[in-house]
Design a protein around this nucleic acid. Structure first.
Lengths: 246, 246
DNA sequence: TTCCATTAGCGAACATTGTTCGATAGCAAC
DNA sequence: GTTGCTATCGAACAATGTTCGCTAATGGAA
């Protein structure tokens, strides 16, 4: 009277893996835990992926794909970025910038912010994207889209290549840093207290040795976790824009 | 007639850990291996650090400290950057930029490049710096130095804070990405063949779907592993410079 | 010199994890 | 009915971070 053996599918596994990763994080997520959530055995997972690393690569590529879809949808709807970034309007292009360049930079901005939105939702994604090179399918598409947006910029080919890699690299690199800070913040039971404690700790250092840190402690309330990422992205794009002037 | 038990010191452990990490990488470095190299027992390491994580945090902070020392030495010698970056001269400041700002940006550039030099020498460093927040001593000093370089830039305090965090975050985030690619390249026995194989693989995708990738494949020979990092850094700094104009 | 608390070192065992192996059940085709 | 392929899983393996408890050295106080 054995119950029917559970039957899996890659989509189910991906789904379960995402929720597990979201709740416990990348380090703490174990194949046994994942199998248990699927009401299945550990070894079964090895039929769908060669191991934990590849499984996470597959899952990451899935989320990267969703980011690409979102970006395409936004472009069709003529939206400059996902709605959660309304407080960060794209900077005005300079008068010296060709409309082709300005449009390309806006496309890049939209694309990267869509990816960053996924990173905010899935804190483990960025560091995983770092580990897996541009081998997976969607990773290549992402790079391609960034590059296409640069083709009308007037930059020479070498610069286009360099810029495309800088932008793609920026997203995962900076995203990983921001995600890490978010993870630490969430790990503390009381995030608010943790934050003020951190600031107090910094304030405890000698003002003589750390004048800048002291001068700036009061400004933290003006920032949220997305500020760094978006400002850095806009700095890079601003620098790229300026490259096209000469 | 037992041989004298080996006596350790934190400095020895750090030294051995660095060489071990350099040779086998962060994942493959085990406490047992480290203890063996020190001709000591595993449990002994726990007297000096609370575990593997803290040990790596200590080691990372040590290397960050060396980067700070190097930057200070270079500043005293009036060198714009470590000698391995001679092929990447700092960009000319624009006429609209105050000398105070231009000097500050150069200081930041020198500092970040010194850290990046350590990352090139120690491939595991960047991703480790991501994991450990700005708690350790030298990490705070690093942030402070970046901030001090911004104090004469004319930016308001909130912008100073934001910019300082963007720059510090950029270094480890982008460094982690670049390091990861270098690790993968070294993992292959024949790095050269691996590289051309990668390019061939990209070339195998349809030119219709990936026009940019195809257009740019021939440009890879113009880049080295430091290109991305330095160009991205200069883009960020260029964007910062432009922020001070308005 | 003797005693003893502190510092430092270490072997052995533990718990957890990714991974592999071999067996087996469902199932479709011949 | 036999065969072969797909999918599943329990059990065992190997590696690793960590803890426990015991022991050796050290050096100052009695």
């Amino acid at each position: 009277m054995a119950r029917t053996r559970t039957s899996l599918s890659l989509e189910q596994i991906i789904e379960a893996a995402i929720t597990t990763l979201d709740t416990v994080g990348a380090e703490k997520m174990t194949l046994r835990g994942l199998a248990a959530q699927l009401d299945s055995g550990v070894a079964s997972l090895y039929w769908y992926a060669s191991g934990k690393d590849q499984l996470m690569a597959i899952v990451s590529d899935e989320l990267l794909g969703r980011a690409l879809d979102e970006a395409e949808a936004l472009e069709r709807a003529d939206q400059p970025h996902p709605k959660q970034f309304e407080n960060y309007p794209p900077p005005e292009p300079d008068g010296r910038t060709s409309t082709g360049t300005a449009e390309g930079l806006l496309q890049i901005r939209r694309l990267v912010l869509c990816l960053f939105a996924q990173m905010l939702e899935h804190r483990w994604l960025a560091s995983q994207l770092i580990k897996a090179g541009p081998d997976e399918q969607n990773s290549l598409s992402y790079w391609e889209l960034v590059g296409q947006a640069l083709q009308n910029s007037g930059l020479d080919l070498t610069r286009q290549l360099q810029a495309s890699m800088v932008v793609s690299t920026y997203a995962s690199g900076m995203g990983a840093e921001v995600s890490q800070r978010a993870i630490e913040r969430e790990a503390a039971e009381d995030a608010e207290a943790q934050h003020t404690a951190q600031i107090d700790h910094w304030a405890s250092f000698s003002e003589e040795d750390f004048p800048f840190v002291h001068s700036v402690l009061g400004e933290f309330e003006n920032l949220d976790e997305a500020s760094d990422f978006v400002m850095g992205l806009d700095l890079v794009l601003s620098g790229l824009e300026r490259l096209t002037w000469d």
